[in-house]
Design a protein around this nucleic acid. Sequence first.
DNA 1: CTGAAAGCGCTTACAG
DNA 2: CTGAAAGCGCTTACAG
Lengths: 349, 349
Amino acid sequence: MPRPRGTHDARAELRGRAATINDIARLAGVSKKTVSRVINQSPLVRADTREKVETLMREVGYVPDPMARGLAFRRSFLIGMIYDNPTAQYIVDIQYGALDALRDSGFELIVHPCDSRSPGYIDGVRRFVQLQKLHGVMLVPRVSEDQALADMLDELGCRYARIAAVALDSPERMVVTHDRDGGAEVADYLQTLGHRELAMITGPATYRSAMERSEGFIGALRRRGIEIPPERLAEGGYTFESGVAAAERLLALPAPPTAIFCGNDEMAAGVYRVAVRAGVRIPQQLSVVGYDDSPLATRLWPPLTTVRRDTRDTGRMAAALLLQNSTASGVRLSVRPHLVVRDSCGPPA
Amino acid sequence: MPRPRGTHDARAELRGRAATINDIARLAGVSKKTVSRVINQSPLVRADTREKVETLMREVGYVPDPMARGLAFRRSFLIGMIYDNPTAQYIVDIQYGALDALRDSGFELIVHPCDSRSPGYIDGVRRFVQLQKLHGVMLVPRVSEDQALADMLDELGCRYARIAAVALDSPERMVVTHDRDGGAEVADYLQTLGHRELAMITGPATYRSAMERSEGFIGALRRRGIEIPPERLAEGGYTFESGVAAAERLLALPAPPTAIFCGNDEMAAGVYRVAVRAGVRIPQQLSVVGYDDSPLATRLWPPLTTVRRDTRDTGRMAAALLLQNSTASGVRLSVRPHLVVRDSCGPPA
DNA sequence: CTGAAAGCGCTTACAG
DNA sequence: CTGAAAGCGCTTACAG
């Protein structure tokens, strides 16, 4: 079966070499500028010319060279992902989500962890963004909460998408995760189970997510007439060890809580640890709720009731924001947390 | 305090604009080709010329544009990380390690997950490598075990570094993790504790790591005169759920094992789950060993005895291999697993 | 040891 | 709607 003539000729001409814009122009009998217009979807090309060029590009499998294009554009086709030190699962989920959005877009994802406590970190990001001429960057909590970083990017003219618990920026630069709602939902759930003596282990007060989760929790309880006394509020560091330390303190209280809400699953695992060692049974003697719905939640026994975040969606949205041409679009800009009930909560003893 | 004159002049000339090779050439009073030679560390530059150019580059903070350089070189300054579906912690650790090695090298890491079971995946990687003109790729298990993928990269002339349990390739392309040794160490440990009735939940037989771990375990036991009967060998899928299923089968055996070695921590967590539900106490009635030393190992109760892999080092070595100019070098090409004893093992009941 | 010319594969700015 | 010229910031190939 003979191939279509055009294809054969075009392929033969190239002799296995990757096609360039010059090849396409020559084979199509147009100037390279016209091919460039087709590549860049300029409306200033006659329909039949466009058709001819597009067919040819498809036939020879031509894809423009990102480095050449980037050099001419003075901007690369790379998206940077900037993050400080979230959990491994969170990083990976954001990455997968971002890659979902970037698939077949011609953009690639380049990862850039950094230490937001080190003094020169903003300069480090600046050098990275400038040198690579990034098309845009995704800012993951908690660097996403750093206004100085956002200001620097703005000054550089680098687009960015911030992932944060609340809207810290204009809508086209934000993916909002509404952590306050998650905290409130936990409050409602525990209240409905009958708990009145509640405690919370919050994340670091310097994290917006931590503040939102705890304020959502405390606020919702207050609206239902329940107050958490100060000694039942412990600040943790989002780590297992800090969860252990906080739980030890809370369970040693003269009037220990009947339920503990933890700012994340890692700290909830810390509560589990203390409970086992102290012989406190979950959920019979103590209810525990986490936040994240990490894989850990289902590995623990009993399986942990926790708040799920759609992290992969979050990453997808953030990357999609960076690819948009117009500000107006159908991209969803927020993601809602929701409670996943498992077996770590029951009515108070 | 007046600045050194040279610096001031050079900076003033640029007026905030990023310097190019032309600026450096002009300011240094040499041709751009000479500057290029300095950039590329050519020996064909007189020492004082080099010194003059280097000083100037430092003063104005000149760094060559990777896209321009890449276009001229026909090769980018990007390293690709290709992986299938390892655990989140593993992916992130390899990434951190790779970034350690790439720091200040001018190279960046671009992530590329793929599905090695999908038929077109090798073509997908080929397009990725060709389009981005990658400097090299890191192959993480299990894609690292795919000879067809390695052959394709070889044909493309793309350098690669394979991370695998055994040497599948020439030394300058391998980071070997010696999983067999890890399995053997577990055997020795359990044997020393007095166990004779052993079981193993292996990873998928299609994973080289899984085979190495189990063969190391079984072989070491055999050398000590202990055989594992076939019904005590269960194949899992490196997942929690498969660990649960395998453990249920093993513990229901007429003569259940006194110790179970699991091909990874996730499956060990599955064994824990079954043990809790069946009222089997760890380590009093059942000893359990995992592999990975993932964060999960210390979140479980009792803390899991497991085999640690230095994953970050592994990633660092793989990336370092790709940066090397000569084959001969001081880069270490292998990493040794070692047992981390915690509280999940004891003498048999 | 150093440099002028041409080129990497695209786009911008200007014409028509 | 289309194209010829110049340029993005580097390197290669060739001279000297």
